[in-house]
Structure formats: C-alpha cells, structure tokens
C-alpha cells in the first residue's frame, strides 16, 4: 500500500459543517468569555499587589502622621512583615510568568518543559514556603506588638505562633491535596509525554 494513497484518501475527509464557528454564535461567545477570564486572572495579581502595597503604606504612614513613632524593634517587625508579603506577591507574579511562558505555540518539547515547570513551581512553593511564611508573618506581628506582648503571659504569644503554624500546615495540606486532584494526573501524563518524545524521538 502506497502511503501517498493513504494520505490522499485521508485528506478527502471533511469536517461536519456545524463544527465551523461563526461570528455571533455561541462559539464566538465562548471565545469572548475566555478573553474575559484571561483578563480577570491578570487583574487578580494587580489587585493583590495594590492591596498589600496600600496596607504597608498605611502601616508606615500612620505612626508618622499621628506622631506615635515606632521603636527600632517595631520597625524590624514592619520590615519583616513587608519582606514576607512582598515575597508572597513576588512568587504570585513569578507563577503567573511561568504559566504565561507555557504557550501552546511553542514546540512540544519546550511546551512540555514549560508546563511541567509551572506545576513543579506550584508544588514546591506549597510544600516549602507555607511554614516560613507563617513564621515570618507571626514573628513580624510579634515584633510589631512586642511592647504589649512582652508583659503578657508566655503562653499567649506561643499559642498564637502555634495556631499560626498549625493553620499554615492545615492550609498547606488542603492546597497540596487540591493541587493533586486538579493537576496530579496532568503532571504525570505530561511526564509520560516528555519521556515518549525524548526516548522515542
């Protein structure tokens, strides 16, 4: 059997006419909806950045405006909180950058690598950064309120920190489970594809 004959026969097949989207149909509505969701995703990062930035500005400006200047320890707390939150926002942006880098018009090998990098980044940040964030956040709050908390019984800040780390651990577990449910199979199949391309290629 001549392969060119197979090609000729194959190419004679035409798609059902109904599968061609026309302007003004539900298909074009779907495309518009996709565009809207894309824009929504982009705005989320900006919104988080603006909110966190505003909160920090207010936090820094209020003592100056009210005349209640902070002690060096309190400033250390503010700096720690700032670094923690800025780190969080930076990772959000980095995650978005990685997702955008996985463009379907890359070649398949590059696309698979980019898509897998996105999944690995998400899993790694969930796994390793939830606790440091909670500790950084807790320590920042403690330093900021040290003047009051230093006279409180020891168990209070300790309990606060334990609750914070406990919440972070619980949140991490929930996020990891959700990540596995949503993307676990995808990740494994992408690895399978990567191997299929690399090994058999």
């Amino acid at each position: 059997m001549d392969f060119q004959e197979l090609q000729r026969s194959w190419q004679q097949q035409t798609a059902p006419a109904a599968s061609t989207p026309e302007v003004g149909t539900s298909a074009s509505g779907l495309l518009a909806e996709t565009q809207r969701l894309h824009r929504l995703g982009q705005r989320r990062n900006w919104l988080a950045s603006v909110l966190i930035g505003s909160a920090l500005l207010i936090e820094l400006a209020v003592p100056v405006l009210t005349g209640h200047l902070r002690t060096p320890v309190q400033y250390a707390g503010v700096v720690l909180l700032t670094l923690t939150l800025v780190g969080y926002v930076a990772l959000m942006w980095w995650g978005t950058t990685l997702r955008r880098a996985a463009r379907p018009d890359l070649d398949s090998r590059a696309y698979l690598q980019a898509a897998l990098r996105t999944f690995r980044f998400r899993r790694t940040t969930l796994l390793w950064l939830a606790i440091p964030y909670a500790l950084g956040f807790g320590a920042g709050i403690w330093l900021l309120n040290k003047d009051r908390l230093m006279y409180a019984p020891v168990w209070q800040p300790v309990l606060g920190m334990v609750l914070l780390v406990g919440a972070a651990l619980w949140g991490r577990q929930v996020a990891l489970r959700r990540h596995e449910q949503q993307f676990g199979e995808t990740e494994r199949q992408l690895l399978h594809w990567q191997q299929a391309l690399e090994l058999k290629g």
């Binding site: 379907p104 018009d105 890359l106 398949s108 696309y111 698979l112 995808t186």
Partner: peptide
C-alpha cells in the same frame, strides 16, 4: 504546534 500541544494537555 498549537493543535498538538492542545491535544497533549
């Protein structure tokens, strides 16, 4: 490319 990568995912 777009077709194949979309199929992969």
């Amino acid at each position: 490319r777009v077709a194949v990568n979309t199929a992969l995912l």
